[in-house]
């Protein structure tokens, strides 16, 4: 009997939502981290997976969202969750301005430029740019978010906030994947020249992918700021971008389920390996290497698109 993938996914999600009832707060917090990285990974997946642009600076957008929330909340008293759209817009706008001149760069040249971008953002934050980022101290005392009068503070509370956000992300992005936009991105990933020839404005589509992915990462930044209540530039280093990059590529670039699985592996494994004490990152590095070797396309690569051809070949 073949069970539809949608039902399996739904069942898994339901099991996940029950997890805080049986897990202690540490493991719930690990799941929170995984959820946050899954959201970020999915937003990076639009750029790196669907559109195939080598982007290793996603933490920059995440940082801008988190700082937008922190500044609006601590300096102007805006409730944390209300800053969500502003964070998204701020990150998207930044992406629009920055990506415009570099979008035509290819492969590894784009990669180093995005690395440069995330480093510039981090250095700007450390140097207290415009006098609003708090320098190396970062910004502290960010309020806990309130939802319908309920204050979200325990890891268990955040679990539901984060995973509902993740669920929404999955839903919207799977619609996007099968839209005209998603198909166009796949096309230009596979063959940019042919895509251009078929009338796809590749530069505009690439830019749109960048802006959308950035905006979503910015909103994830809001959740991060709310969860930590303190943010500092160290949280948005180049290494964070590398982690997100590994999540997408290891999980399977272009596949939503793959990226979520990637988040579980890349973020969850160091926690599982804690028993190895100071050797845990050694095993983690080995695991990354061997998983990639054994699943060279990523653990769950996207399946080729299939279409039912109704009425063809049946004769008249």
């Amino acid at each position: 009997m073949k069970v539809p993938g949608r039902i399996v996914a739904g069942a898994l999600f339901a099991i996940l939502l029950g997890a805080p009832l049986v897990l202690d707060r540490y493991w719930v917090d690990v799941l929170n981290s995984i959820g946050l990285y899954a959201i970020l990974g999915l937003s990076l997946n639009i750029i790196l997976g669907y559109a195939g642009m080598f982007h290793m600076g996603h933490a920059a957008f995440y940082a801008i969202g988190a700082y937008a929330t922190a500044i609006l909340n601590t300096s102007y008293g805006v409730p944390v969750l209300w800053t969500l759209p502003v964070s998204g817009l701020a990150a998207a706008l930044f992406a629009l301005v920055v990506a415009r001149p570099i979008i035509h760069l290819r492969g590894d040249y784009l990669l180093i430029v995005t690395i440069g971008m995330v480093e510039i953002v981090r250095i700007a934050l450390i140097n207290d740019v415009f006098g609003i980022t708090g320098g190396a101290n970062g910004i502290f005392g960010i309020d806990r978010p309130q939802l319908f009068g309920f204050k979200i503070r325990q890891p268990q509370h955040f679990f539901y906030l984060i995973w509902l956000f993740a669920g929404l992300t999955i839903l919207l992005f799977s619609l996007l994947e099968n839209s005209r936009f998603g198909r166009a991105l796949n096309y230009l990933r596979e063959d940019e020249v042919a895509a251009e020839g078929s009338g796809i404005n590749t530069a505009a589509y690439k830019l749109a992918a960048f802006v959308l992915g950035a905006g979503w990462a910015g909103m994830a930044g809001t959740v991060f700021a709310a969860k930590m209540t303190i943010i500092s530039p160290e949280s948005f280093s180049f290494w964070e971008s590398v982690v997100l990059f590994m999540i997408v590529i290891l999980g399977g670039a272009g596949n939503i389920v793959g990226v979520i699985l990637g988040a579980f592996l890349v973020v969850g494994l160091p926690e599982v390996f804690r028993d190895f004490a100071s050797a845990r990152m050694l095993f983690y590095g080995l695991a990354m290497m061997f998983m990639m070797i054994y699943r060279t396309q990523g653990i769950l690569p996207p399946r080729p698109r299939t279409y039912r051809l109704d009425g063809v070949g049946e004769g008249s």
Partner: peptide, 13 residues
């Protein structure tokens, strides 16, 4: 900081 918040949650249990 992020590792530390996980470590703290782990110790808290």
């Amino acid at each position: 900081p992020r590792q530390a918040s996980l470590a703290a949650n782990r110790l808290a249990t």
